[in-house]
Amino acid sequence: MNIFRILGDVSHLLAMIILLVKIWRSKSCAGISGKSQILFALVFTTRYLDLFTIFISVYNTVMKVIFLVCAYITVYMIYMKFHKTFDREHDSFRLEFLLVPVTGLSFLENHSFTPLEILWTFSIYLESVAILPQLFMISKTGEAETITTHYLFFLGLYRALYLANWIWRYHTENFYDQIAVVSGVVQTIFYCDFFYLYVTKVLKGKKLSLP
């Protein structure tokens, strides 16, 4: 466990907590893509099936359970508890455009052709594109609440820190997982445009709105 990895995990956790706090405090999930949150719940569910098959560490198990619980509470808030505030009209990204290629690719390019391994690969590929419905929603409405941008910032930061973690692990342990690394790079690229807007607008006290 290196500093990039632990900071990455903390960013990831912080992102999910920021989102939950935003929804809970404002009693509203306006501006949040329910579809992205469903995809993240699906990502964690298919990736963490190894909770039943292998024990890695207390940290690993506890974090996985927390991530799963946070993801499902978020989905519950959006589609059940505060569903009246959910902006269904603007959350119109077609999920099949992501799910079909991701499913196909996870069958074609994986470490081994076993159910758990394919589901893990599926989760890695899906995570790399899961934020797209959210980014699509922002580009459609042309704006995002500042707290939503903080959520996106920490989610992107988590991925960028994981890249640093992989570079570190490659040099110190010769650890290298091609599927995770390539997907991680793709995922981080999706955030670059947003990072730019975050730094030039939100950090200067302006609301994120697109021209």
Partner: peptide, 10 residues
């Protein structure tokens, strides 16, 4: 085909 590295990451 071999399985990938140990999946100790989240």
């Amino acid at each position: 085909e071999t399985e990938g590295p140990v999946k100790d990451e989240l």
